[in-house]
C-alpha cells in the first residue's frame, strides 16, 4: 500500500475550503434556441476531507467536478478553491486540484506509466532528479514492476492507479475524481477504494458505487442540474435510492 501521507502539504488553516457561490452553468446554446442550464449551485462550502457526489447519468456530476479545477468555468457566480478563483487564478487552481477521469486511457498520455509520470514531473522537478522521483512514486504505489509496460497491457485497476499516481505526482491538495471506479471490476474497485481511503488529500468524488459513497464524510445528490440532497452518507444513499426507484420525484 502506498505511503500516501508523504504527499501531504501543510494546509492553510484559514482557507482550506472549496466554495461555490451563485453558480450557473449553461450548455452552449445553438442558433437561437435558449441555452439549457446544466448546473446551478446557490451556495456550497466543502471542508470535509471526503465528499461524494451521487446522481443519475446526465444529472450534472461531472460538471460540478469540472468546476473545481477550472476545466469548466461558471457562466455566472464564482468558484474558489483555498482562496483561489478558478477564473482569475486558473493556473494556480489547476496545480492545486488534481483531476482523475473515468477512463485512465484518456488520462495517461504517454505509452508507459513511467513516461507519463515523468511527463507530470517536467514542470516541477529538474531533469536530473526526475527519474529518481518517478521511481520513488511508482514504488510508493506498488507500481514499479508495471512501470515500463504499455499502458494498454495493464488491467483496468492498475491503469487507474497509474493515472492516480500521475496526478498525485504534482502534489495537489484537492482531488476531483469523476467516477473513478465505474470501469473497474470488483477486485480492482476494492484496490482503488483502499488506496483512496489512505490519501491525505481532500477528495470530491462522483460515483455510482454506493459502497464507495458510504466511505465518504459527506454526500451530495445531484438531480437535473441541482443539488437536491446534502448530508451524511447513509441518508444520502437512502435518498438517492428512493429518487432513482421512484422515477420522477
Amino acid at each position: 500500500m502506498p505511503d500516501a501521507r508523504s504527499f501531504a502539504r501543510p494546509a492553510d488553516p484559514d482557507d482550506d475550503a472549496v466554495l461555490l457561490r451563485d453558480v450557473v452553468v449553461r450548455a452552449a446554446g445553438e442558433d437561437r434556441r435558449p441555452s439549457r442550464t446544466i448546473l446551478t449551485v446557490d451556495g456550497l462550502r466543502l471542508t470535509e476531507r471526503r465528499i461524494g457526489v451521487l446522481g443519475a447519468n446526465g444529472s450534472g456530476k461531472s460538471t460540478l467536478l469540472r468546476l473545481l479545477n477550472g476545466l469548466q468555468l461558471p457562466d455566472s457566480g464564482s468558484v474558489t478553491v483555498h482562496g483561489l478563483d478558478t477564473r482569475r487564478d486558473g493556473r494556480a487552481v489547476r496545480a492545486l486540484v488534481g483531476f482523475v477521469f473515468t477512463d485512465p486511457l484518456s488520462q495517461l498520455v504517454m505509452p508507459t506509466g513511467r513516461e507519463d509520470l515523468e511527463l507530470s514531473l517536467r514542470r516541477s522537478v529538474p531533469r536530473k532528479d526526475r527519474a529518481a522521483r518517478a521511481q520513488e512514486i511508482l514504488e510508493r504505489f506498488g507500481l514499479a514492476t508495471l512501470a515500463d509496460q504499455s499502458v494498454y497491457e495493464l488491467s483496468g485497476g492498475e491503469r487507474q492507479l497509474m493515472a492516480l499516481a500521475s496526478v498525485l505526482a504534482v502534489e495537489p491538495r484537492v482531488l476531483a475524481l469523476d467516477e473513478p471506479s465505474t470501469l473497474l471490476d470488483l477486485r480492482n474497485r476494492e484496490l482503488l477504494r483502499r488506496t483512496l481511503a489512505e490519501l491525505p488529500q481532500q477528495q470530491v468524488l462522483a460515483t455510482h458505487d454506493l459502497e464507495l459513497a458510504l466511505d465518504m464524510d459527506r454526500v451530495l445528490v445531484v438531480d437535473r442540474a441541482e443539488i437536491v440532497f446534502d448530508g451524511d452518507p447513509a441518508s444520502a444513499v437512502a435518498f438517492y435510492r428512493e429518487l432513482s426507484l421512484s422515477g420522477t420525484p
Binding site: R94, F99, V109, P126
Partner: peptide, 29 residues
C-alpha cells in the same frame, strides 16, 4: 472525442499552460 479527452486531461494536469519562467532554467530542459 479522443482529442477532446486528451485536451481535458492535459489541461487538468496543467500541461496545457505555457511554460513558467522558472522552467526556462536549463536544468528543466
Amino acid at each position: 472525442a479522443y482529442a477532446q479527452r486528451t485536451g481535458d486531461a492535459l489541461t487538468a494536469r496543467g500541461l496545457g499552460d505555457a511554460t513558467e519562467p522558472e522552467a526556462d532554467d536549463p536544468a528543466f530542459n
